[in-house]
Amino acid sequence: MRGGPGGRGFGGPDGFGREGGRARRMFDGGELRLVLLKLIGDAPRHGYDLIREIEALTGGAYAPSPGVVYPTLTLLDEMGLVEEQRSDGAKKRFGVTEAGRQHLAENREQVDALIARLAALGRQQEQGDRAQVRRAMGNLREVLKNRLFAGDISDEQAHAIAALIDEAAQKIERL
C-alpha cells in the first residue's frame, strides 16, 4: 500500500490515512519526536535503526523517511533529550538523556497512545491488505451507482439487486 510519508501508506479514516480524500500524515506536531525518543529510551539507536523499528512495529505498512527522521534526531539532540554515543563506524548512535527520560515520563499517556497506534497499524497489516476484496467492493459500488442513478431500473430489479447483496453478505458472514 503506497501513499504516505516515506512512500508508505496507511489505512483509512481510523487515524491512519485518508480523511475527506486527503492523505493524513502519520504523525502530527511533535508525535514523531516522542516516538523516536521512546525507541531511543528503549535502546540506543542509529537513525536507520529507528526507521526499521517503526517499520517493524507497523508490519511494514509505514516507515518514516530519512528526511524526517534525521532532522528530528538533530532537534532532539539540540533539545538535550538525546545525546550522541560512541559507536562503531560512521553512523551516529543516540541514547536518551535524563532530561529525555523525564520528558517521556511527563508524556507517558501520549507516548503509549502513539505506540498503540503503530501496533494497531501492524495488526491491521498482519490481517492482510486484501486488495482484491477492496477492488471487488469498489467494483460493486460503481456498478450499483451506475445502475441506480441512471434511473432505468424497475422496482423488481431493485428488489433483485438487494436480494443478491443480502445473499452475498450472508455467505461472507458464514465464511
Rank of each mutant, 00 (worst) to 15 (best):
E126D: 15
K171M: 12
L34R: 03
R117H: 12
Q124Y: 09
L32C: 05
H103K: 15
Q157A: 13
L34D: 00
M79N: 02
L32K: 05
G20Q: 10
R18Q: 12
A162N: 06
G100R: 05
I172F: 04
G3M: 08
D152I: 06
A168H: 03
R45Q: 13
Q85R: 15
A131C: 04
G9Q: 08
G89Y: 12
H103S: 12
G128L: 04
L50Y: 02
R101M: 13
L148K: 08
G11T: 10
K145E: 14
G12L: 13
R130W: 12
F16Y: 15
A168R: 14
A168M: 09
Y62N: 05
G138L: 05
R117D: 04
D28Q: 14
Q125D: 09
V96L: 05
D14V: 06
G29S: 13
L144N: 01
Q132F: 11
E173F: 10
H159P: 00
G122L: 08
I40M: 04
R25I: 02
D166R: 14
A116N: 10
A99T: 06
P64C: 11
G11E: 11
M26T: 03
L50T: 05
G60C: 06
E167G: 09
G20W: 10
G3E: 10
L114G: 06
L148C: 06
Q132N: 10
R25G: 02
S87M: 03
R130A: 14
L75H: 06
G67T: 10
P71M: 06
P13W: 10
F10D: 08
R135C: 03
E173Y: 10
R93P: 02
D42T: 11
L144V: 04
N107W: 01
L37Q: 03
L39A: 05
K38W: 11
R93I: 09
A163P: 00
N139P: 00
K171Q: 14
G12N: 10
G9L: 12
R134I: 10
R24Q: 15
R52P: 01
D42Y: 09
K145P: 00
R2T: 11
V111T: 15
G4V: 01
L57T: 02
F94M: 09
I172W: 00
G41T: 08
E55I: 06
